[in-house]
Amino acid sequence: MSEEHTHHPNYVKIWAILVFLLVISVTGPMIGIKWVTLFTAFGIAIVKAYLVVVNFMHIGATRRFVPYLVATCLLFMLLFFAGVAPDVMKATGKNWSKPAWVEAQAQAGAEGGHGH
């Protein structure tokens, strides 16, 4: 019992699109506008990854089991992020704080810095 034969699209054309997107992702941030940087760097990374997974890895041509498997792993990654990020990204919480971080922030503020 084997799967259907793999359909092979025009791979060179897909590669050319990927290279074009790479050029945009490098030149976009040079404009210096934050939202353009975010879009060109990370938005395009998602598009590039999608093109590779769909056209080179043929995820759409495999049984549904595989996309579900991959989606489940990505979901766990998001769950991990949602669970841990508040502890990492905040200096204080309901019953906890990070004295060293708070102190560093205060020091940076006193020195006129903007960073954390």
């Binding site: 792993c73 766990f76 991990f80 992020f81 841990v84 990020a85 990492v88 903007h114």
Partner: peptide, 22 residues
Amino acid sequence: ASEIVIFGGLLASYIMHRLAHD
């Protein structure tokens, strides 16, 4: 799938730290 969890965990950790530290 197992590699997604390994690299995903690493990259998610990087992103949350990066967002917290300008």
